[in-house]
């Protein structure tokens, strides 16, 4: 009915968070000048970039689900845009679906993103140690 609105709402929130995190990272990068910080920024994927993965999944998934709802005639181009919002019984069903299916969708996408981020953190740690040792050796020579 309108379950895609929950992940779409989360997408709005995570997009705003991404913008804030990105501006903070840019400030930090311009402030730091140590060699290790420079190496870290080269090797580590910024957190704002990882948040973009979540944004893409949430926005993309919501867009394709919105397309499905248009297909089924549940979303219409005139007010109130959702056919279920036209009568009170359908409206309560819609709200119940949003609170169960919609929330589950948002949680599953977020959980998968946490998994991807954790995996990328583990992968990032491997070459980081090797490059840091090389940089350290280079400074000592």
């Amino acid at each position: 009915m309108a379950c895609f609105l929950v992940p779409a709402g989360e997408a709005v929130a995570t997009t705003i968070i991404t913008k804030i995190v990105k501006s903070k990272e840019e400030k930090e990068m311009s402030a730091s000048d140590s060699i290790n910080a420079a190496i870290d920024t080269q090797i580590k994927i910024p957190f704002s970039h990882k948040l973009k993965w979540l944004n893409n999944m949430l926005w993309g998934g919501s867009a394709l689900l919105a397309f499905e709802h248009i297909w089924h005639g549940e979303v219409v181009p005139w007010f109130p845009f959702l056919t279920a919002a036209e009568n009170p019984i359908a409206r309560s069903e819609m709200l119940q679906e949003m609170s169960t299916v919609g929330v589950a969708m948002a949680l599953l996408v977020s959980a998968v993103w946490v998994g991807i981020t954790t995996a990328s953190n583990v992968i990032e740690k491997r070459p980081q140690q090797a490059v840091k040792v090389k940089a350290h050796r280079g400074r000592n020579q």
Partner: peptide, 20 residues
């Protein structure tokens, strides 16, 4: 990569729908 994330996002949402 962005395209694949769009499809993965939709797949996860439709998977949830399928489970319900």
């Amino acid at each position: 990569g962005t395209l694949s994330l769009i499809y993965w996002g939709a797949s996860l949402m439709w998977l949830t729908d399928a489970v319900f």
